[in-house]
Amino acid sequence: MKEHHHHDHGHHHPKQPDIEDQPITYYKVMTEALAELLVEKGVITAGELRAQMEEQNSRSPAFGAKLIARAWIDDSFKSRLIADVNAAAAELDIDAGDIPIRGVENTDDVHNIVVCTLCSCYPRSLIGLPPDWYKSRAYRSRTVREPRRVLGEFGTTLPEDVEVRVHDSTADLRFLVIPKRPDGTDGLDEVQLADLVTRDSMIGVSMAKTPA
C-alpha cells in the first residue's frame, strides 16, 4: 500500500472548500436575515424550519416512479393520473401536496418536456428537489426555444413526426411526464417497472430505462 505523501515537496494542494468558502451573495444574506427574523418574531420556530427542510429533502423520484409504474399496468389509473395527479397519488398513500399537478403522457406521437422559463417550478413532492441544470438560465431559455437540441444534449433524439410538446410551468400548475413504457417489460412486476422510471424521464429530458 502506498503511503500518503507529505506536503513538503514544493507545491500547494488546494483544500476542499467549505460551505463558508463560497461567496456570500446578496440573496444569501437576505435569506438568512428573513429566516432569522421569522424565528425571532415567533412566526415560525427554528424546529419548524428544520422540519420543513428535512421534509423537502426526503422527497425523491421514487414517489413519482411508483405512480408511473402503476399507470403502466393499470389504464384506468393512468387516466386518473393524467386528470389529477394529486388525487391519484393519494390512492397510493402518497401526499403530492396542495399545488395541482397534471400528468402528461408520452406516446408514439407526442413527447412532453417540462421547463419553468420564469424560475424553477417543479413537482418537488413527487420527484424531490430540482437538479441545478433545471434552474439554470441555459435550460430555462433554450428548452422552449430549441427543445430538440436540448434533448439531443441529454442523449435523447426524436423523429420529426413526433411532436415535441414543451410545458412551461409558469403559474399554478406543475407537470409530471408519464414516460412511455419500454419494450420488453411485459414480464416485469410493478416494483421492477418502478426501477426503470428515472427523475429525468419524469421531467421529459430522457426516456425510461430499458431492462438490463
Partner: peptide, 14 residues
C-alpha cells in the same frame, strides 16, 4: 425554429 413543424409549447396564462 428548426425543429419539426409539429412541435408545440403550452404556456399557462391568466
Amino acid at each position: 425554429y428548426d425543429g419539426s413543424p409539429k412541435d408545440t409549447a403550452i404556456v399557462d396564462l391568466y
